[in-house]
Structures are given as structure tokens and as C-alpha cells.
């Protein structure tokens, strides 16, 4: 998974720590910046990961945000 460089370290740490919350946060940020740059497919890929990991980690607000975005684009 290649994230933008400024989030790559944070993401790598989260993966190594098996920290689903932190991974979900990284994916959400990544999704949001892709979305604002107009790359909807990449955004939805990242929203999907944010959603799944947030569900797993009980991060309700991340899950909600990601789900709304996925629904908006007809992906969930």
C-alpha cells in the first residue's frame, strides 16, 4: 500500500503495531485527499479500508464517515 509520503511512516507503524484504529485513520485521511483531488476510485478503495478497519476497531465516527462517502458513490 503506497500512501502519500507524509502518511507513509505513520501507516507503517500502525501496520506493525496491528493497530486497526490508527490504520483506519490513515486510510480515511488518504481517502479524503484522493476525493478532493477528484480520484474517486482511489478514494473509494481507501474509504473501504477505513470502513472495514474502523468497524473492527470500534471507531464509530470513522466508520460512519467512510460509510457515508462509500454510499454517496454507490460503493456500499
Amino acid at each position: 500500500m503506497a500512501l502519500q509520503t507524509d502518511r507513509q511512516d505513520e501507516f507503517q507503524d500502525a501496520v506493525e503495531a496491528h493497530d486497526c484504529s490508527a490504520q483506519a485513520k490513515c486510510y480515511l485521511q488518504e481517502a479524503q485527499s484522493m476525493e478532493s483531488s477528484g480520484d474517486i476510485d482511489s478514494a473509494c478503495f481507501n474509504y473501504t479500508h477505513a470502513y472495514v478497519l474502523a468497524l473492527d476497531a470500534g471507531e464509530k465516527s470513522i466508520a460512519q464517515t467512510a460509510l457515508k462517502a462509500l454510499e454517496k458513490y454507490g460503493r456500499e
Partner: peptide, 23 residues
């Protein structure tokens, strides 16, 4: 990463319709 809840319901099926398409 298909996800089920504690009632057994299937909640999400990530990428099941292709990357980023979850239905």
C-alpha cells in the same frame, strides 16, 4: 475481511464487486 456482527449478520464485503466496490 468480510465482516459479520455479533448477531451473525454480514455487514460488509469489501471489494466484492471489484476494487473499492463493496456490493
Amino acid at each position: 475481511s468480510w465482516c459479520y456482527d455479533s448477531k451473525g449478520k454480514l455487514r460488509t464485503t469489501p471489494h466484492v464487486g471489484g476494487a473499492g466496490h463493496n456490493t
